[in-house]
Design a protein around this nucleic acid. Sequence first.
RNA 1: GCCGACGUAGCUCAGUUGGUUAGAGCACCAGAUUGUGGAUCUGGGGGUCACUGGUUCGACUCCAGUCGUCGGUACCA
Length: 479
Amino acid sequence: MPDQKIVEPRLLRGFRDYLPAQMNARLKMIATIRSVYERYGFQPLDTPAQEFRVTLMGYGEENTKQIFAFQNPEEEDVALRFDLTVPLARVVAQYPDLVMPFRRYQVAPVWRADKPDPGRFREFIQFDLDAVGVSSLAADAEILCAMYDTLKALGIERFSIRFSDRKVLNSLLDFAGITHERSHSMFRILDKLDKIGLDGVAAELTKGRVDASGDTIPGLGLDANQVGRIKEFIALPKGKRREALRSLEKLFAGVGSAKEAIAELTFICDSLDALGISEQNVQLDLSIARGLDYYTGPVFEASLDDAPEFGSVFGGGRYDGLVERFLGRTIPAVGASIGVDRLFAAMEKLGLHEFAPSTAKVIVTIMEPGQLAEYQKLARELREAGVNTEMYLGDEKSLGKQLQYANRQQIPLAIIIGSDEFARGEVTIKNLKLGGQLQDRKKAAHGKEREEWLALSRTVQQTCPLTRCVEEVKKMLAV
RNA sequence: GCCGACGUAGCUCAGUUGGUUAGAGCACCAGAUUGUGGAUCUGGGGGUCACUGGUUCGACUCCAGUCGUCGGUACCA
């Protein structure tokens, strides 16, 4: 291409490639999550990436700027979905024959035009589970339980799922004498408690503050009495679920609207006890708000104790009003959503992923190109036996190069057949994974350990009759 | 969106008060070793110093703008 302008290969801000090693880890993660959801009997659903723009809008116009919106060739206003909950509400309204309760899971990419952060992208996968048409809070407890099982199944031990109830916060407004119109800004500020501390929250509730970068954040203009009440609420003991609940009951004793919230949380605590969910991982935290307007009851969010900077990796709640927008009548619903890519990034930081670029377990190297058919036959035989097998197709003629390739792909076994083996009807199987491990341990091995090392070294490479190749390969992979 | 910092090899970074030929480590490639990867040694390729303009005899270095990256903050149905 003389004189032609090279197109610079680059990505859009907030978008990522997933190369094979990461992709294998991500697929494994998704498969694990799916197996948990299916264990609860949730059923799969998929919906299009694009929806009519009006379908996606409607909860606060200021948020629409985060939506990737454009016109299609028919000049209709369309947008990329920004979550999976709104499309679910659309589906429920559109298919009246769906059997209720409708319990579905969905894993799919969504798009938001946010500024990217660690673990935060413009295109990312969400993995949702929701129960629609269920008013019983047993569903909410079950969602919490599924969240717990999912994080455990992913191999995460130290995580915290915190839950509360949107109705608690509404009662807080009554308790502090704040009008409900200001609920949104009020909840938003409260949600920042973890981040900016009690003093920061107090400042934002009153006259505002200047942050570390010198930016001014306007205050809400509450009076000292109101802030005092909010502080009382924040100061409620965290402790065990029951204790937190009792102290809330005491504080809100004079607030009529609080009875329902307390009854709901009591029900959920009972259910969690019945389900055997530990206090260790699932806590009642009255301060969590979740920014979304559509929540009407219990809300939940999970974060990893050892990677708190990634924030909420799994969150949800009850949204009894959402389907009404499409149907004109109320259908109760509750669900939760994993930010798969955010959780992936957090787990990556904690070293919880196994990265291997190749799915092959065996590579058949080519030493005698004239015998290609024999190599092909053997590869076929291995595949038919269920062994993931790659036959070397590159241009390198030397065995060393082919083994180097296999090593880089982290393929554990290599099959070597040269003129000697062909003459005797044999194959040599080399364990690259074990060989690599032994190399690492070579220097450290002394005395008894050295004996063991030598014994293992003898098993790195073995020769057997061609007829027993598949059997030997399986045996070596099983270790 | 706002505030700040930073852009030198694939990666991590040196680069003197502005001085002529821009360096290192790692990675990569080749050879030592044409039937054995990861070790060692020797050699090699690779740069529009983000971009554009300005100041200057001379700019990787100073100035301005643009783009990009990162951090904080705001926002997050």
